[in-house]
């Protein structure tokens, strides 16, 4: 009797295998992506692999910087504020990378979040920082880039596609370099 029950379980397992095989293949066939038609262009979004949303940052002296104008360079967009300890802790590393990789079309864009131009410039002067300063005066760009904690850093490739995002910090110089090297090596 017990052997009979076990035999039926063997049949059940084999039947399930056949059923899953047939249904699985059929579903894989039915649900295959439509590669015949052209794939739709990726929408700009703040996720890895998507084109970075086009934004205009404020800049010192009431000027402006657009992200589009930096296409053709690897851009490290670092959202920071002078009151944020991990932001301050990674500034020297970002500055060093900006200097070392400048000749390889890599640029660090430090986006100060909602502080006055005077405060941001004073901080950068005191710290002897030479990378490009952008100002997110009203916090709208931070909102668009879903910056919910400082620092947040986006690594954008030469085509304007987001390749990595680092939430929090401080980032070390080797970490920043490794992210940039990965982009340059692609």
């Amino acid at each position: 009797m017990m052997v009979q029950v076990k035999m039926s379980l063997i049949k059940l397992a084999r039947l399930t295998a056949v059923l899953f095989g047939v249904l699985g293949l059929a579903w894989t066939w039915i649900s295959r992506p439509d590669t015949g038609s052209a794939m739709p262009a990726l929408q700009a979004s703040t996720r890895v692999g998507a084109p970075a949303p086009a934004v205009t940052f404020g800049a010192p002296g009431n000027s402006a910087i657009t992200l589009d104008s930096l296409k053709g360079k690897v851009v490290v967009v670092n959202f920071w504020a002078s009151w944020c300890p991990p932001c301050r802790a990674e500034m020297a590393a970002l500055n060093q990378v900006n200097t070392d990789y400048g000749s390889r079309d890599v640029i660090v864009l430090g986006v100060n979040q909602m502080e006055s131009e005077e405060v941001a410039i004073k901080f950068m002067t005191e710290q002897n920082l030479g990378f490009m300063l952008a100002l997110d005066r009203d916090g709208l760009v931070s909102q668009q880039y879903r910056v919910s904690a400082l620092p947040t850093t986006y690594f954008i490739d030469k085509a304007g596609v987001i390749r990595d995002i680092v939430y929090g910090g401080p980032m070390t110089r080797p970490l920043i370099e490794s992210k940039i090297n990965a982009i340059l090596g692609q």
Binding site: A13, R14, A17, G21, G24, W27, W29, S31, R32
Partner: peptide, 20 residues
């Protein structure tokens, strides 16, 4: 075809055959 689906079909069939 999606690779995960193909692998999934093979893995599910193999597992149930192995149970038998």
């Amino acid at each position: 075809f999606r690779v995960t689906q193909l692998v999934g079909v093979v893995a599910s069939v193999t597992s149930f055959l192995a149970i038998g």
